[in-house]
Computed example of a mutant assay.
Amino acid sequence: MGVSLSGFESLAVVEWDKWACDTIRENQKRGYPLLQNWPLWEGDVRNFDWSSIADGIDLLAGGPPCQPFSMGGKHKAYGDKRDMFPSTVELVSKLKPKSFIIENVKGLTRSSFANYYQYILLQLEFPEVNRRQHETWLDHLRRLQREKTSGVLHRRALTYNVVPTLVNAADYGVPQKRERVFIVGFRSDMGIEWSFPRPTHSYDALLYSQWVTGEYWEKHRVPKSKRPEVPEKLEKRIKKLSRTLLHIEDSAWRTVRDALMDVPDPRKRAAKEFHNHNFQDGAKIYKGHTGSLLDLPAKTLKAGNHGVPGGENMMVMDDGNVRYFSVRESARLQTFPDGYVFHGSWTETMRQLGNAVPVALARCVSASVAERLAEAGIHKLSHSKGRKVA
């Protein structure tokens, strides 16, 4: 959805999960415009007929399954049959896109995966240097390293300039502290210079609006008598912000309260006006399972319902009690539009949301890529016609 909002037209949308596909088909039947013309194919990406897609497409975007690298998973990485990075590299080699955007979990960057992470980046940089029969991935890594330092690989036909970045979605206006790795690449022959978009939102700006100006509480009509005390651990930081009278250019991090300010409690009658906004009973607090506070971005939504380890799918209400986020509230935290309806049971819809890339963040990254591709296209056109374009 993010890349569609950035102006890209999808030639293939490949998804193996039945429920995610059902959600797309349901919205297409309802006439939801953004994905009306998506050519959806349900199944394993390795079985799709990629010969139907011409070489040199503008963008290949996707997220290989994160479970092999997730902090909550089995941490098998290259030993996990769900590791789809080899297939990702194969697709880059086959389609030769002008650019690619790959998203994955922060766990990919942990020290225990350092060599495999480097291996992934080198394969994406030189996708035509295939792993030989009976060659281990470590031997392939060493060969890539040797050939890269020798300069031989840079003379190959297909190479990419690859930029990996660890990103917190909250820094880009998503009401959720969600750290993810984005690996963005541009085909070397494009001559494109690119860096990850600058953050637009900050924690300091939120603290300033809450504890220095009070603007945050006034916006939400929280009377002074009901405003919380300044957290003791933040007193020095807030005093510093207050003393310097710092002009903060960034917008404030968006909080759970910000995201849900116009959404009624799912237990109220007015909740029926919102799709997928049903109350789910059974939320409980226990050690390590505490839920998301109203006045901070939410914890990272995870692909589960009740059993997620940190209570990430619960919210702590003003009175201190907790309840589960409804599907619609979870969608708000992932910046999905209200008109997009989710299909499936509570478990399946929460899995779709936990696995999703926040729409606003995907749009931000893909729009930046689209801008560079457009500039490169204009530059190429101007030179081919022997004149300059302003």
Rank of each mutant, 00 (worst) to 15 (best):
52 S>D: 13
257 R>F: 07
361 L>E: 06
79 G>F: 10
293 L>N: 01
322 V>T: 07
248 I>Y: 10
216 Y>M: 06
218 E>L: 11
149 T>A: 06
208 Y>G: 06
191 G>Q: 08
377 G>A: 04
310 G>T: 15
350 M>G: 08
222 V>C: 14
158 L>N: 15
226 K>E: 15
7 G>V: 09
373 L>S: 10
271 A>V: 02
357 V>G: 04
298 A>V: 06
73 G>T: 08
94 K>W: 06
111 S>G: 07
167 V>N: 03
260 L>Q: 08
209 S>K: 14
366 S>Y: 03
145 Q>L: 07
292 S>A: 12
25 R>K: 14
369 V>D: 06
352 Q>F: 02
245 L>E: 05
172 Y>A: 01
343 H>A: 04
95 L>R: 13
167 V>R: 00
223 P>L: 12
80 D>V: 07
175 P>H: 00
11 L>S: 14
49 D>S: 15
205 A>D: 04
123 Q>T: 04
365 V>H: 04
378 I>V: 12
182 F>Q: 02
77 A>K: 09
189 D>W: 07
179 E>Y: 10
44 D>C: 02
269 R>I: 12
288 G>N: 13
220 H>T: 09
72 G>A: 15
314 M>S: 03
232 E>D: 03
175 P>K: 02
83 D>Y: 13
245 L>Y: 12
103 E>H: 05
104 N>Y: 06
343 H>W: 13
13 V>D: 15
278 N>S: 10
33 P>V: 02
36 Q>C: 01
70 S>L: 10
373 L>Y: 07
355 N>G: 14
192 I>W: 13
278 N>Y: 13
367 A>R: 10
347 T>L: 02
6 S>Q: 06
152 V>N: 14
104 N>Q: 01
60 L>A: 03
211 W>K: 06
119 Y>W: 15
139 D>F: 13
351 R>M: 08
13 V>L: 15
190 M>T: 02
30 R>V: 02
24 I>W: 07
122 L>R: 11
276 N>A: 01
15 E>M: 04
17 D>A: 07
210 Q>R: 12
19 W>V: 11
375 E>W: 12
118 Q>M: 07
385 K>L: 11
231 P>F: 11
153 L>E: 05
198 R>N: 01
150 S>Y: 03
296 L>E: 14
293 L>V: 00
15 E>T: 01
146 R>D: 15
197 P>D: 01
212 V>N: 07
8 F>A: 02
261 M>D: 15
82 R>P: 03
368 S>Q: 05
317 M>H: 01
316 V>Q: 13
369 V>H: 11
244 T>N: 14
179 E>W: 09
351 R>P: 00
70 S>K: 03
86 P>R: 10
364 C>M: 13
16 W>S: 13
